[in-house]
């Protein structure tokens, strides 16, 4: 939201708005979400420009990832000095004619992620997710991208009263 609410005459956004990263951080911190089975593979993160450079949530992102993963490997450069994924500001939406610009321009990004030796990249942003997945395929690397919400869903503990009894089990 570049100057969004300001261009409409509001000095600050009229309703507080949060990024999901911050929300998930609060959930994990307050114990609303409990992590049951941590990820074992080496994991790294992508700092999206909109969340980390513009809103400064890099620390919260890492704290969620560290809570849910056993082997966390940080990128370099990181936080607000991180490289863009080459899909920002709508470049992701330009379609097939412009795919090459993301693949060629993203070389710095993918080299940086590859240097960490991680197998999973946690990306909290839709554009970053799609482009890094495409970059991995383009440069033929053995990596995989995961959303931060996907990570939480895979690792969180579902309380007993919410668990669904699978039909196969009930028949036994």
């Amino acid at each position: 939201m570049y100057d969004g609410s300001r261009s409409l005459g509001w000095k600050e956004p009229p309703i507080t708005y949060l990024q999901p990263t911050q929300l998930f951080y609060e959930f994990v911190r307050d114990g609303k979400i409990k992590i049951a089975n941590k990820l074992k593979e080496p994991v790294t993160v992508q700092d999206p420009c909109s969340i980390v450079r513009n809103k400064g949530l890099g620390g919260m992102l890492r704290s969620v990832v560290k809570a849910a993963c056993e082997d966390f490997r940080d990128v370099k450069p990181r936080f607000e000095h991180n490289f863009c994924c080459t899909a920002g500001s709508g470049v992701i939406n330009y379609g097939p004619p412009w795919k090459f610009i993301r693949m060629e321009g993203g070389r710095t990004k993918i080299e940086q992620l590859h240097a960490t030796g991680a197998k999973i990249v946690i990306a909290p942003c839709h554009s970053c997710h799609k482009t890094i997945e495409e970059l991995i395929a383009y440069y033929k690397l053995d990596m995989h991208v995961m959303f931060i919400s996907e990570l939480l869903v895979q690792t969180m503990e579902i309380p007993e009263d919410m668990q669904v009894v699978k039909p196969e089990k009930s028949e036994e």
Binding site: G4, P14, I15, L18, P20
Partner: peptide
């Protein structure tokens, strides 16, 4: 159009009288 989209987004929040908006990314 950017202004219109932004205004509609906040208007939805006003209409539902919510305390916080969480965006998708």
């Amino acid at each position: 159009t950017m202004g219109m989209v932004e205004r509609m987004h906040f208007n939805a929040g006003f209409k539902l009288k919510v305390k916080k908006i969480v965006t998708s990314e």
